[in-house]
Design a protein around this nucleic acid. Sequence first.
RNA 1: GCCCUGGUGGCGGAAUUGGUAGACGCGCUGGAUUCAAAAUCCAGUUCUUUCGGGAGUGCGGGUUCGAUUCCCGCCCGGGGUACCA
Length: 945
Amino acid sequence: MKSFKFVVLLSINNLFMAYNPRALRTKWQSRWKEEQSYKVELDTSKPKFYVLDMFPYPSGSGLHVGHPLGYVASDIYSRYKRLKGFNVLHPMGFDAFGLPAEQYAIETGKHPSQTTAENIATYKRQLNLIGLSFDWSREVITSDPSYYKWTQWIFTKMFNYCYCTTADKAQPISFLMEQFETDGNLKTSAFTDYSGEFTAEEWKAFSKKEQEEILMHYRLAFRKVSFVNWCEALGTVLANDEVINGFSERGGHPVVQKPLLQWSLRITAYAERLLNSIQDLEWSESLKAQQENWIGKSEGAKVVFELAPKPNPSNAEEGNQTLEVFTTRPDTIFGVTFMVLAPEHPLVNQLTSAENIERVKAYKARAKSKSNVDRQASKEVSGEFTGAYAIHPFTGKQIPIWISEYVLVDYGTGAIMAVPSDDDRDHAFATKFEIEIIDICDKSDYPDATNADKLGKMINSDFLNGLEVKAAIPLAIKYLEDKGRGNLKVNYKLRDANFSRQRYWGEPFPIAYDQEGIAHQLPEEELPLELPQMEDIKPINGKAPLSKVQDWKYKGMPIDTDTMPGNAGSSWYFLRYMDPNNSNEFCSPAALAYWQDVDLYVGGTEHAVGHLMYARFWHKFLYDLAYVPTQEPFKKLINQGMIQGESAFEYKVLGENKYVSYNLKDTYDTNPIHVAIDLVNDKGELDLEGLKKWRPEHANAEFVLEDGKYIVGHEVEKMSKSKHNVVSPDDVIEQYGADCFRMFEMFLGPIENHKPWQTKGIDGVAKFLRKTWNLFHDTADNFVVSDGKASEKEMKVLHTCIKKVNDDVERFSFNTCVSAFMICVNDLGEMKCNNRAVLTELLKLLSPFAPHISEELWEQLGHESSVVKDVSYPEFEEKYLTESVINYPVSINGKMRVKIDLAADILQEDAKAQVLANAVVQKWVEGKELRKFIFVPGRIVNIVV
RNA sequence: GCCCUGGUGGCGGAAUUGGUAGACGCGCUGGAUUCAAAAUCCAGUUCUUUCGGGAGUGCGGGUUCGAUUCCCGCCCGGGGUACCA
């Protein structure tokens, strides 16, 4: 009876005293919250450091174990920098506007503002569970009017600015209008897609409406007709990824291209600057390459072709029309045998002769019915002759003009000069339609060269004959210039960004239209223009949801009914964190002067071009207006890899309610079906009782087992709800604790690698944390540390770890940090080290990785201060690592044969004598000629015989 | 096709500047402890071997005293992109 009581007492005691991650988590997380441990203020006495995670979209399914990979890494770095004396800005917020919330609202009737608020609450709870050191007082939510006021404000700035190509920066539209008043557009260097010319007199003679239409071609935020994916059956516009092979993803209804007057942002004006400053960024080479490819700069020439007069011109002016093309191979001009226009090219209708008009119309209609993606996916050669001809600028020959889908209306000039001998697509086209092919480039010196290599010697090319391609190109351009038929031209793949969405859940445009349809911005004091509350947010008759709002007017003028896309709010959020509650400015100059830019940005590669390109563009625009102090927003960027899920499959026999185990599936005709991964144990065995509860259709099913077990099949795929392979961090943290979760995520491998989630190794990290705890406690879990002077061996172990962790955090190699901690704790454990001085430093080192256990043990050491914010990072001291003797590996002919201790300061001659005297070395060297003795101090000895 | 990545034990991975290949962890094997199990601890764990060694970082060459690392030519996986004139 007595001993029974004793056992109970002991286990209760254990429950309270032993390492209990759950209790520590709640204790310290609430303490940090109470004490606002992670609140950060502008403090010019300290150097700043800005660590940012990519803005999460709060989806309905919450965080899975893949998301925190980057968050934990950036948190460790933030905590590390804090202990190093930096004033660290480490904020978090939510990209809360967007399509999924709106779609969910339409399906369930729940208002997006409600679901968004719920999802944000879930995200915050989960993020806090991990023990991340965010300053929540700086939280930014894009759907909050106090935030989107400034998104709208930046938009109005873009509306009021154009781009000056000589000053190479944005300039006010008013400046441009003054130019028009004095010189028309003849002298302006403003960036534009406007091709007409007008004098000052003509400008003044234009109506207000005509003037505004011209200005739209200069504004950085402007309206133009662009195409949307229109689905008649759903009565709505679809995003590209909602369209599959010309049909809607939901329902499979046909989708057509429909022209709509929409807002765009003139990012193309910044193409060259966006390209040039990539070089200065500390981003991965692959990411830089993706941005460069996206901008897609190519140098070539603009060539102007006269059009041959029509046999029966309907009016006299038509005869003087010209056709402009862009080419990267002006040297091939003597090989041009036809021209091709995009079907949508504005000259097509007017060029087409009467006898071809029907067929051209039919071809255009066919092109229009296909989505862009479809058109580009098809490799089929198709086209139609217009009946018109152009005149070759040098030979004067008549060249037939065709239209074809392979020419894209929005790249270059929407027209090409076709050179079938030196372009694969032109060649295929010429072959199919039996058009002449003139050989103009002798490639016999380069048997393996493709057309893309631009190699060969010019032939049949008049003044270019005999020249290599590289020499012929500049000469051809010079000739074109001299004859006034063309000039050097640089072209970019980058397109202006469509900035309108016919949706509800986004920022409204602060723009109203007068009776003539002229766009006017709302005055600044009217911002924010709040999104009106609507019960039913479905689009109506193909019009945007806001068109249903009765009084959606400003001073009687109708307000724009489109809303901004998701990338609006996320293009500048990183600036708002610097001064999140400012109601007078988007961010104060003082905050900007101090925080400057993001020092470290952590996020996934899925934003490689979209978000990062837009944010850089907005930032450069704000820089031009002198609102921000830096040219680039994100100095250093780390891409975290994707954590994939491991899916599990059961195998259903076709047509029967029967499931066979993995290794037997090939003897039946089966279909794999996803099963919930949490019903499967480490050995791949399926919990059949759990399965029956999860999916009742299994209740009466027959299971064909192997060795009495049902074994599932596995596959690694993206983690997603529909694949039933999602693992929530909540469960892992509940079972192992937040510190273990954090360290295990880091231990999985290099931060940038993609890897499947497997809890297989997590016990190793859990063991490590227990061992760390046990350095401070005896077997009965009493807190025991000793006070004397630490031994040299202990100091060596400690400082080896300090050096390794310090170096590895700096290069973002967190997995090797965890290894270093394990080695250190194992070594100290082996030495039975519980020395206060050693353990104190160890806790400081560990706290960025495992803040909860560190804080608890820190308190147990008797500190009133906090190890997560009040201490400074341990200093590495070389003297603890210096050795008087070094154990050298000795290689013979490059193979390691023996290790020999040599004095650290030994000279080569002495080393040689000692090494050669060694018995093992003797054995290998005996009877052979000693050719060379290599001694690399501190490293290695190599003997060549 | 083009651009970018990566390829190392049974598994995740380490080797930072060309210098001991496989750190650390998982798993596995054997042992201690236990009535037993879990947990814990100890030892072993690239392959091969005639126990001297030999081979080995996707494959084939090269440079070097020495190559996972640098160079040339291939193969395979992952990501991006695509009629871009």
